[in-house]
Computed example of a mutant assay.
Amino acid sequence: MTLNNLKKILLWVLVLIFVLIVWIKFPLIFKEWVFKLLVKPPFTPEAFTSLGPIGDIFGALTALLTSLTLIIVIYTAYLQRQANIHARDAMAEQLRQAGKAAKNQLEQAKEATKEQLEQARESTTQQLDLAQSTHRAQLKETIYSNFINTYNSLINYKLAKYNSIQIFIDGRVWHSEEIFKEIALYFLGQRRIFDLKLSRSEIGALYNKTLDNIAGADKGLNEINSYFLLYQSIYDLINNSEISEEENVFFRKTTSNTMSNHEQLTLLWAATYFEDCHELVKNTGIFSQFYPDELIPFLVTFFEKSCFSHPDTLSKWDQYLNNQKPT
């Protein structure tokens, strides 16, 4: 309800109060008016009879006042209705504003919740990635540690096997390096091998005969061949382990560096004939020593390039093949 409407209602209340007062005082006013202005003594019946039309006039006036009162009541009801309409509209507007505010708050809450969920999801993802990364690092470290331990165990076992290779000749014990040196020097002295005058089987027969000549036919040196097969286990471990290519090359080179030049020459001779030894040297670069030019035709004929790792040997290998191509 506005201030103007309130003033109007107060005005009508005052008017009604005034009318009520006049209505209560009306008999006295009427008496004074009749007996002082309309009827003067002497009070005869004819004088009172002349007052009948005046009474009728006041009856009409009563009806008029009643009508005015009804109109005022109707108008007051109208004003009240308008006030109720305004109040209802104001309440509806307040409800709309409240609904709009609630909707905005709900949208803000949804956005905040969505952002919190997104942050929580991102945080969880980061934690999961970190946990997975840490797990992979720990697993890789464990695998690498197991590889190192196994590799060292095999190298130590190979060394123990190497030191166990010995024979008793002419009253003294020949140890492994002396035996490999004797075999290697005899091998390097066989020009017919390097001139490609012997077949693979003939080279193998000569190798077995050499071992018999050194140790004696009744003793033999067959443990040398079983010793060489340990390298197969070492290279299988390196190739099957989850290590980088650089680490793979490093451990293959480290393995070949544990061999002396005479041991490598003995393995080179044995691998020419024995299939197991021939297979184990492939893709290993195990022959890391430098070989003179006269050995290159023999190497190219009986071996693959992947068996060698010395850069000069590989360079001479390529030069030899290029020279063999027809011009």
Rank of each mutant, 00 (worst) to 15 (best):
L6P: 00
L6R: 09
L6I: 07
K7S: 01
K8S: 04
L11G: 02
W12N: 11
I17T: 14
I17D: 06
I17E: 12
V22L: 13
V22A: 13
L28T: 07
F30L: 14
W33V: 05
L37N: 06
L38T: 03
V39M: 13
F43M: 11
E46F: 10
S50A: 14
L51I: 14
G52Y: 15
I54W: 14
D56C: 09
A60T: 11
A60D: 09
A60I: 08
L61K: 03
L61R: 04
T62I: 03
A63T: 10
T66R: 04
L68C: 09
I71Q: 10
V73M: 12
V73E: 04
I74H: 11
L79C: 06
Q82I: 04
A83C: 05
M91N: 14
M91G: 06
L95F: 07
L95C: 06
K100S: 13
K103H: 08
K110W: 07
A112G: 03
K114I: 00
E115A: 15
Q116R: 15
E118N: 15
E118D: 14
S123Y: 08
D129G: 00
D129Y: 04
L130A: 07
R136L: 15
R136V: 13
R136W: 10
A137H: 10
K140H: 09
S145Y: 15
S145N: 15
N146V: 07
N146P: 02
F147T: 05
N152P: 01
S153Y: 10
I155C: 09
I155K: 03
Y157S: 11
K158S: 12
A160G: 11
N163I: 01
S164L: 08
I165S: 00
Q166F: 07
I169W: 02
D170T: 13
R172C: 04
V173S: 06
V173T: 15
H175I: 09
E177F: 04
E178L: 07
E178Q: 13
Y186V: 02
R200V: 13
I203D: 03
I203Q: 03
L206H: 01
N208Y: 09
K209L: 12
T210K: 10
T210Y: 01
L211W: 01
D212C: 05
A217V: 13
A217Q: 15
D218I: 11
I224C: 05
Y227P: 00
S233V: 02
I234G: 05
Y235H: 09
D236C: 11
N239Q: 13
I243Y: 03
S244D: 09
V249K: 15
T255H: 05
S256F: 02
S260L: 11
S260E: 11
T266P: 00
L267Q: 00
W269D: 00
W269V: 01
A270V: 01
L280S: 06
F287L: 01
F290E: 15
F290K: 11
F290Y: 12
D293W: 04
E294V: 06
E294N: 14
E294G: 03
I296G: 00
F298A: 01
L299A: 03
V300I: 07
F303L: 04
K305Y: 10
K305T: 05
C307D: 09
P311M: 08
P311D: 12
S315I: 02
K316L: 08
Q319D: 12
Q319I: 11
N323A: 06
T327G: 10
